[in-house]
Design a protein around this nucleic acid. Structure first.
Length: 489
RNA sequence: GCCGGUAUCGUCUAGGGGUCAGGACACGUGGUUCUCAGCCACGGGACCGGGGUUCGAAUCCCCGUACCGGUACCA
């Protein structure tokens, strides 16, 4: 079969700025982006802001920032423009109005003077009492002259699509063929009485105008798809390929919402996640390369991504695994990179000193190195580094009770301080040797000294390895902190 | 209600007519050890139910159930 050279794919992410960029949207954007990058196609970003009431420019900004943070750059769209500009639906209104009139002229849609009936107006339809809230026959029975008269009189009207009898099917790259009996499809409104288009109209008009070849979007749109296919047909346009990706659910398998904690990508950034972890994690929610690989750089992801690998069932957003990915990527960051990432965090905590990037740069890197295997999120570096940057103000109560009860502890610690004061060299090995020597000489277990010293250094019961820590703290600080604790005994 | 979709360890998933149903996260045990983390080793843990088709079904088909989505002049 000599198929015509398939055009390079053009995909789009078309968020509605009625909220921030949530993880579900981010995942959809990611799949589109990966597909475009993999195929050498074009990734279009289009803002669907036809719902003036609920859209806001702040949300637009937030969405763009979220995408940027994730590293998902768009080839056409806000900020970068493109041959199909504008990319805001609010700036394309005339186009939709013209398209709606086209439909009427072609006999595929009709004027409805019935007035709006929002969803809430109708009785709940789950008791079998469902009824359509429009009267096609009545609307169609109005003579053209009468329609004209009412139009001229400025009577409010919507334009409804005239759904033809028959069946509408489409091939979905994830689900296979999906068919709908048109009898179940309403004569949906394409242009509201306020002259704004509905989603179905604007999305189809734009996808046609922007030459979109593959529509990759959430599963919640499969039921909408036949309406849109009907619209493509009415416009005599080529129907794009569809790929409906499963939805992301909360741990209770319910639709993700505020109840589940963070849902916006910005919130994850604030919580100390790094974008490459988020990208890797999100990519695997609903998609698999087919083997056992899990840790994949963005380049790997691009190299392996295929629509065929998208799962059919919904996925639960599981933060524990995200934490693991974050830990993996945190571990892999270079020292300078990590330090740069952390700087604002330390600044916010009031622990930043410029020499951490200057004279004490390598010392700081060593501190971070001690913390790396223990940190899952950026904030944990701040938490863990605090004892290195400031002496403890007090000692953990449980720690005191558990580790400071040994008889003659003050004397032991004084001896330890004395030993450390003259220890040469001041290295991990000699520190350990020194401490164990004191313990032995004084007839106590090394652990007694170790735990008490840890508490003296950090005020806490948990910390990185004691001797590595002592070395980095430096002789003066170690001796001082030891003395300070001894004084409280 | 109606329409559509989905169903493999707790979670993300691989696989897909004949496999010990594989991996990862999480979990448990042991080891390393000064605590924690890490690391290493080991371990428990799944094909929604019922019918078919077949020599054989977790895999294909049907029904049921559950869940998700749609059923707006929201997107």
């Amino acid at each position: 079969m000599s198929a015509p050279a398939s055009p390079t794919p053009r995909v789009r992410f078309a968020p509605s700025p009625t909220g921030y960029l949530h993880v579900g949207g981010a995942r959809t954007a990611l799949f589109n982006w990966l597909f475009a990058r993999r195929q050498g196609g074009t990734f279009v970003l289009r803002i669907e802001d036809t719902d003036v009431e609920r859209s806001s420019t702040d949300m637009v900004t937030g969405i763009l920032e979220g995408l940027t943070w994730l590293g998902l750059d768009w080839d056409e769209g806000p900020g970068v423009g493109g041959p199909h500009a504008p990319y805001f639906q609010s700036e394309r209104l005339d186009r939709y109005r013209a398209a709606a009139r086209e439909l009427v002229a072609a006999g595929r849609a009709y004027y409805d003077f019935g007035g709006p009936s929002k969803r809430g107006d109708a009785a709940a339809a789950d008791d079998g009492s469902y009824e359509r809230r429009y009267d096609r026959d009545a609307a169609l029975a109005v003579t053209p002259d009468e329609v004209q008269r009412r139009l001229v009189a400025g009577e409010a009207h919507a334009i409804r699509f005239l759904v033809p009898p028959g069946e509408t099917a489409f091939a979905d790259l994830v689900h296979g063929e999906v068919r709908f009996d048109n009898a179940h499809i309403e004569d949906f409104v394409v242009l509201r009485s306020d002259t704004y288009p509905t989603y179905h109209l604007s999305v189809v008009v734009d996808d046609i105008d922007m030459a979109i070849t593959h529509v990759v979007r959430g599963d919640d749109h499969v039921s909408n798809t036949p309406k849109q296919v009907l619209l493509y047909q009415a416009f005599a346009a080529a129907v794009p390929q569809f790929a409906h990706v499963p939805l992301i659910m909360g741990t209770d398998k319910k639709r993700l919402s505020k109840r589940h904690g963070a849902t916006s990508v910005t919130e994850y950034e604030r919580q100390g996640y790094v974008p490459e972890a988020m990208v890797n994690f999100l990519a695997l929610l609903g998609w698999s390369p087919g083997g056992d690989v899990e840790l994949m750089s963005t380049a790997d992801l691009i190299g392996r991504f295929a629509l065929e690998g998208i799962s059919t069932g919904n996925a639960v957003f599981n933060t524990e695994k995200l934490d693991w990915f974050n830990h993996q990527y945190l571990t892999r960051r270079s020292d300078d990179d990590l330090a740069a990432l952390l700087r604002p965090w330390f600044e916010r905590a009031g622990l930043w000193h410029d020499d951490l990037a200057g004279a004490r740069r390598s010392w700081f890197h060593e501190v971070l190195g001690l913390l790396r295997p223990r940190a899952k999120k950026l904030g944990e570096f701040v938490e863990g580094a605090t004892p290195f940057l400031s002496a403890p103000r007090d000692y953990d109560a449980d720690g005191r009770a558990k580790h400071l009860g040994a008889p003659d502890l003050a004397a032991h610690l004084t001896a330890l301080g004395d030993a450390f004061r003259t220890l040469e060299p001041f290295t991990e090995a000699s520190l350990e040797q020194g401490l164990r020597g004191v313990a032995e000489a004084r007839g106590v277990k090394a652990g007694v000294l170790i735990h008490a010293t840890r508490l003296a250094m950090t005020g806490r019961t948990v910390s990185p390895g004691l001797f590595e820590m002592l070395r980095l703290l430096g002789r003066d600080e170690v001796v001082a902190r030891l003395g300070r604790m001894t004084a409280t005994l």
